[in-house]
Design a protein around this nucleic acid. Sequence first.
RNA 1: GGGCACGUGGCCUAGCCUGGAUAGGGCAAUAGCCUCCUAAGCUAUAGAUCAGGGGUCCAAAUCCCCUCGUGCCCGCCA
Length: 548
Amino acid sequence: MLLFDDIRDSIIRTCRSLALDVSAKDLDTDRTGHADFSLKLFRFSGKPGFEKLMQGLLNELGKEKYVSSVSLDGKYLNIKIRERSYLDIMDTSLKEKGIFPDTFQDPDRVLVEHTSTNPTGPIHIGRARNSIVGDSLARILKRYGYRVTTQYFVNDTGKQVMGLYLGYLKSPSRIIDIQHLLEGYRKVYREIEEDKSKEKEIEALIKKYESGEPTVVREVHEICTVMLKGITTSLSRIGIKIDDYVWESGFLKSQEMDDVLSSLSDNIKSENDAQFIELSNGSKVFLRRADGTSLYTLRDLAYHKFKSLNYDWLIDVLGEDHRDYAKSLVEILQDMVNLRSKISFVFYSFISLDSGKMSTRSGNVVTLDELIEKAEQNALEIVKSKRPDLPDGDLRKIANAVAVSAIRFQIAKINLGKELVFKWSEALNLEGDSAPYIMYSYARTTKILKEASTDGETSNVFDQYERSLLRMLYLYPYSLQAAKDGLRVDPIASYLLELVRSFNDFYNNCRVVGSGEHEVKRAKIVNIYRHVLQDACYLVGINLLDEM
RNA sequence: GGGCACGUGGCCUAGCCUGGAUAGGGCAAUAGCCUCCUAAGCUAUAGAUCAGGGGUCCAAAUCCCCUCGUGCCCGCCA
């Protein structure tokens, strides 16, 4: 959990000590500019003794060392905080702990499963939404204090992958590289589209594979490894590294599979030899085909059983098409398998193209690699024109950081429930609410702190720009809390944009270097800003540069 | 047909969970700002029936109901 001098909490405690039963939702971090915190009194006004209670509260809050003023404005109690309290709380935390806010190590072990895309082709930007969000979520939970591991469930079992394998078998060259495999895969599905009966070939392969025929097992593994390598290489280019890769085929004959099957045994029914479970709403969830081969649900149940052995909280990042699936999975796991771990799902809506739905099979895709390359090219041109003074190596380094950060931020800032239509013009735009906007303000702090001093007497006079920036900085833990509570990344992104806006105001109005009595105080504020920026940017995958 | 999401200026988006003081930003447009810590920035102007209708409430973008639009799901695929 987050450890910091929580002023909101303190105000609530003071209210309660006077028998005013307020909760967190009564106390806003005010956005209207009336105050730093405002207490909504609508619920309480009109009750007997209200006036007297307010008098007492004004008095008590006024005595708090961090309160600079408190006033009753209509149905609001407006509280302003001393700038110096903000400054000292954060400055001290950074000096003593090197971090703001500090965290307490939570014993819970959290597993974030993300990406888990079929290794049947290069990862495209639609799937990358899963990876980007999953990776940031893991970082956020870790920052919050959990012990977090990320996992990729590698699908090397089932129809899609056997389709890939079939494409390989049918290719004249039998070359195992991404391009050849992908072509073979697409060809197989084109043929199936024309003639459904061709699926039989895939079914026959599944049977051979699940019965453990050595050549098949070896070749499928080799093919999946090559495809997976392509995906993980793409992901690493945007700073995503997944801790563990767990292969689906490993569960076909496993202790977890046996455990799941024995837990379910009373509930398994069959229909023409195919096995299924009936859920409370009457729907059937099939576990095995009539030919005895396994279905995804069964393997996924075993995988979840496996995860629950080592983790207290399982988080799955899934596409919105998995919403109903997840519901049935949870029903089975909780009611029949008696899984103890807490399970949460994070769903994201799809990214489509102007030309329609993205699909690896049809080829209507923008791959992550393609996006990275164009973004880097675009960034390089821009940085070249802005910084003709820099050597080529530096230009490339900057362009890379800008491109990667911009890609991640553009995805991270959007609420997951929204469908996105990918547009190149937007993806390549590096102005406004974008990563470089944030990175640029960071670069400014480098020079300021190089030239200004943070040692010495700190002035006690604060102007409105210093005040709003300090306040925004202080609000960081609340955004962290919101992100963790909602398993969302966008609160951090929104916070960052608002914070940078506040810094830009400050920068344009408050000279730091050579500002006499203000210099130490302002340099301290800039230093805190730099730390909070580093902290939050890491969470959303923005790579900061000292110079750009 | 049933279920689940989403709908905020021309375009993109925050706020919705937990109702409350003028609905924040950005892109595009127009007019400005670099002898002064980086102009990837800043200032100003213009642009919003918060999809539509009804309800609850002292108070609704926010909660409830209905309608419309969009996406997704309803496989012995994953």
